[in-house]
């Protein structure tokens, strides 16, 4: 499963990583926990409610089920202008 990070998390972890998801995929909530175990230094950011997950260019909820072959992007709070 490909995971992309933007903003602060992109700096901390890298833009793109590939992980081995549980067989059959997992929910976004489970994915966050898995990532936090892989990157404990970024746990606070990975589990923050202000971090949103995006699949197929749409923001998805915590219970969204991500198939093993999908890509997931994580968005910290936005700030433009």
């Amino acid at each position: 499963m490909d995971i992309l990070f933007f903003g602060k998390l992109g700096d901390r972890i890298g833009r793109e990583i590939r992980i081995e998801p549980p067989p059959g995929g997992c929910t976004v909530r489970e994915l966050r926990a898995l990532l936090a175990s892989l990157y404990p230094a970024a746990e606070a950011d990975l589990t923050s409610p202000s971090l949103r997950a995006c699949v197929g260019d749409e923001i998805v909820a915590e219970d969204f089920h991500v198939g093993a072959g999908r890509s997931v992007e994580f968005f910290p709070p936005l700030s433009g202008g």
Binding site: G7, K8, G10, D11, F75, P76, L78, S79, G80, G81
Partner: peptide, 18 residues
């Protein structure tokens, strides 16, 4: 400021801050 899809980092002599 709040909804456009950007992430802004300020790099200063004191370090970087998102």
């Amino acid at each position: 400021k709040t909804e456009a899809v950007f992430w802004k980092r300020e790099d200063s002599v004191d370090g970087s801050r998102w």
